[in-house]
């Protein structure tokens, strides 16, 4: 049963990776082979495991059991460019959440 849900998750990742690669292919006017898309999908799937384990440890390190955006930012710590991008997205999310709350 566990294998089946793994396959289902992999299929969803593979589909979404395919869509994203198609956007890139159109923008850059290049083509990806099916095997390249499959490899990116498998890397993405496995990277989720790395991320999930790190996020859990970061939260625990701060004595929390709930993962927050601060933990997610730590995943991006190795590159200033990536950290800046993720921080901006996080700020955007927070302000749009605040707006929605105000409307209610």
């Amino acid at each position: 049963h566990r294998f089946g849900s793994f396959q289902r998750l992999k299929a969803a990742v593979h589909y979404t990776v395919g869509c994203l690669c198609q956007d890139v292919a159109e923008n850059k006017e290049v083509q990806f082979s099916k095997q390249t898309i499959a490899a990116i999908a498998e890397i993405t799937f496995r990277q989720c495991e790395n991320f999930a384990k790190d996020l859990e440890m970061f939260a625990r390190h701060a004595k929390r059991s709930t993962v927050t955006t601060e933990d997610v930012k730590l995943l991006a710590r190795r590159s200033n460019s990536l950290l800046k991008y993720i921080t901006q997205k996080s700020d955007e999310l927070i302000s749009s959440n605040m707006e929605q709350k105000e409307k209610k």
């Binding site: 396959q7 289902r8 998750l9 299929a11 593979h14 099916k34 999908a41 498998e42």
Partner: peptide, 18 residues
């Protein structure tokens, strides 16, 4: 051409997941 990974994985796709 055909990709073995795709052939193996695609039958498991549920459209509500994506």
């Amino acid at each position: 051409g055909d990709c073995s990974y795709e052939l193996e994985i695609q039958p498991h796709l549920r459209i509500e997941d994506v």
